[in-house]
Each structure stands twice: as C-alpha cells, then as structure tokens.
Design a protein around this nucleic acid. Structure first.
Length: 274
DNA sequence: GGGCAGGTCTAAG
DNA sequence: CTTAGACCTGCC
C-alpha cells in the first residue's frame, strides 16, 4: 500500500532511539507493533507499507507515527515563542514521536534504567521470543511483545536469566500488579499528567525519567519531558544550564504543554544529529 | 581491568 | 528535601 505523508521523515523517527523493536532489511524497516509486523519504506512524500495484517493498516501506521498530530503547527508555536532553538527544531523536521503500547513501554523503560540501548533491546527481544505471539511474515518469524496475560507466569528467575539484572524484580512485580489490577494502565488516561506521573512513580523501578517516557511515548502527553543524559549534555553546552531542577524550570516556564516534544528535539539533536 | 550505559533506590544529613 | 553509593550486565 502506498500512502501520502506530509513532512514526515521515517528514518529519523524510527531510528531516533525511542522504539526498540525494529530492524532494517533490504531498504525496509520491519517494525513490530502490538498486533502485527509492519514493513515500511519512504520514497519522498510517500510511504510504502506492507504487513502480515492489512486490516486498518492506514489508521495503524498513522497512529503509530503520530501523523494525526499537526507538528508544523506546534513547531511554529515553539519557534514564535523564542528562536533560541530554531536550528534544533529545524533539524528535526519530519521527526515524529512514536505512539507505543503502554504495557510494552512500561516494561521496556523499566529495563532501560542505567542500561545500554543494546542491552535493553536484547532483554526486550528475549522476553518477546519466549512469550510473545509468533508471526510468520515473508518466510521469517517475528515475535510480538507479549500481552500481560502471556507474561502472567513468567518467573523472577527467568527474568534474571534474560539478563535484566537488578531490574528483574521490578519487572516481575509490575507484571503481577497489572494482572491483578492492582496497577491499572487504563486509569492513567483519566488522570492529569501530574497525577499520572506520581501514580507511575509509586511503582518500584519507575522514577521520574521512566515515568515521563511512559507518558510521552504511550499516552501522547507532550507536556511531560524525560530528562536524560543527552538532554543534560545539550542544555549545559548550549545554555549552561546543568541542574535538573533548572532544566525543569526552563521547560515549564518556556514550553509548557509542548515541553516533551522540545525535549525530544533536544535529545534527537544531541544523540543523533550533532 | 575500571568505567560507563537513555536511572532508581536507599540511607543518611 | 537534597545527595552520595550501590546496582546486573556487557562492552570497550
């Protein structure tokens, strides 16, 4: 299927480092979504899409890449506000935040704590390969990220064997809590971003940064901004702002509802472009 | 072989 | 409320 897309940069979006489950093969990105494998490449203002399940494929792809959100409009607002990061916003034109599945994001980002990207990806893949649904697509097998039900019986020992290290216990506990409804991923939709942050941060293994990633990446809360080492680096370098407290103040005073998107632009610039 | 990687917890002031 | 240390593991 061929789909017209405006101001979209597939490569920049998918390789930005937010989403762990994709591979690049023969010109195409193979993306493992919640319920299917999507094969996708971009040619100018079009994307070519194939999948093992073409039902609602347009909506699925548009939703995943946030194509329903008018980034041009937001970028104009940000640049008009002040032009101190105009070049950084410009450098990220076409970059879209990917709307990830909440359950997958919670687990993946708990694993991300003080970890390397390669290690995180390995852990997520090991969990998926053992417990996720097996999908045959183009003569290859792929494994979806498991549902909460599929992970119901995973043990702490298995998670340790999968090299989650000290994060294994956090993952085990949150899976149990989600399955017993002691922790509810749906209720977050009804909360303000501030409420949702403290709700998430009550859980062991979820601090401010991970909670912010969850809200920004899987609940489209653009007013929530994960501060990580890349953001800290560029804030120091460019504005001589070093303390986390001061970065928070800067974001909340200046960019408010779009702090999360601005943070992603800063992150993307420092990690992937500069 | 020590240090570090997309942080968080804990214990202490 | 702020801050130093420890923490699984793999890779350099």
């Amino acid at each position: 299927m061929k789909l017209y897309v405006k101001d979209f940069d597939l490569k920049q979006s998918i390789t930005s480092g937010q989403f762990f489950r994709y591979e690049f093969k023969n010109d195409y990105y193979y993306i493992i979504l919640k319920d299917r494998i999507v094969k996708i490449k971009q040619i100018d203002d079009y994307i070519i899409v194939d999948s093992n399940n073409m039902r609602n494929i347009k909506e699925t792809v548009e939703s995943f890449f946030s194509l329903d959100i008018d980034y041009n409009k937001i970028n104009d607002i940000l640049i008009n506000k002040d032009n101190s990061i105009k070049d950084i916003i410009r450098a990220s034109i076409g970059y879209k935040i990917q709307r990830m599945d909440p359950f997958e994001t919670v687990i993946s980002y708990i694993i991300s704590a003080n970890n390397s990207v390669n290690n995180i990806r390995n852990c997520v893949n090991k969990i998926s390969n053992k417990y996720g649904k097996k999908i045959l697509f183009e003569n290859n097998y792929y494994y979806l990220f498991p549902t909460k039900e599929e992970l119901k019986n995973i043990t702490l020992e298995e998670l340790i064997e999968m090299k989650l290290g000290f994060r294994a216990k956090y993952v085990k506990i949150i899976i149990d809590k989600i399955n017993s409804n002691e922790f509810d991923l749906d209720i977050i939709n009804k909360m303000s971003s501030k409420e949702a942050l403290s709700y998430l941060m009550k859980e062991n293994g979820i601090g401010l940064k991970v909670a912010s990633c969850i809200l920004l990446f899987s609940y489209s809360r653009y007013d929530v901004y994960p501060i990580d080492i890349w953001v800290k680096k560029i804030m120091k370098e460019r504005f001589n702002i070093e303390k986390e407290k001061d970065i928070k103040e800067y974001m909340e005073n200046k960019y408010k509802d779009y702090s999360g998107l601005v943070i992603q632009y800063l992150f993307n610039y420092k990690r992937n472009i500069q």
